[in-house]
Amino acid sequence: MRDDEDLTDLIRAAAGGDRRAFEDLVVRKRERVVRAAYQITGDVEDARDVAQGVFLRLWRVLQRFDLTRRFDTWLYRITVNAAIDFVRERGPKGILQPLPGDAGDRLHDPSPSADATLGVAELQRAFLRLAARLAPKQRAAFVLKEIEGLETTEVARVLGITESTVRNHLLQARRVLREGLESDYGWLIRRKSGSGQGEGS
């Protein structure tokens, strides 16, 4: 609750033109914005450009934000729209660009088993390749619901569509991704049962 109050104070100050408060707000929200932009654009540099554009837009329009509404939903909305517009203008990307190596390549399991680590970079590459088969709104719905962990109602608000349309998008997206994983990345999802890591690459 205290965090919410702090955030409201920060937004109010930034909306009043306080640059320091705005920069604090950027620091607080930048990881979320960059991650969502990256999962939708599939490119590190594009995600950075989108994120910068989102925050500059925020700086211009923050005084119009209604403090009784959820700030994150509003910010996601600006981010997703900017990322989708960016992808539509840019067109499909030929070369996939995973996050730079200092992100930490593997999700570590405390147990000593060799099979216990799942390569997050591999999972990320698989997502970028398979999600390219989705329509922009399907991809955005999947990113918001399954990666960012938003509720369906919030995803609908962010995308400006009905909840049933969100459910349809998710159904389609999960089907495409599931089929892609099973056919192209079987080794990734059956690692524990003894499949070799390089099998599907």
Binding site: R35, L123, F127, F142, E146, G149, A173, L177, R178, L181
Partner: peptide, 10 residues
């Protein structure tokens, strides 16, 4: 659901 693994990207 294998697609749920992508939740780990969070």
């Amino acid at each position: 659901d294998p697609a749920l693994l992508f939740a780990l990207l969070a």
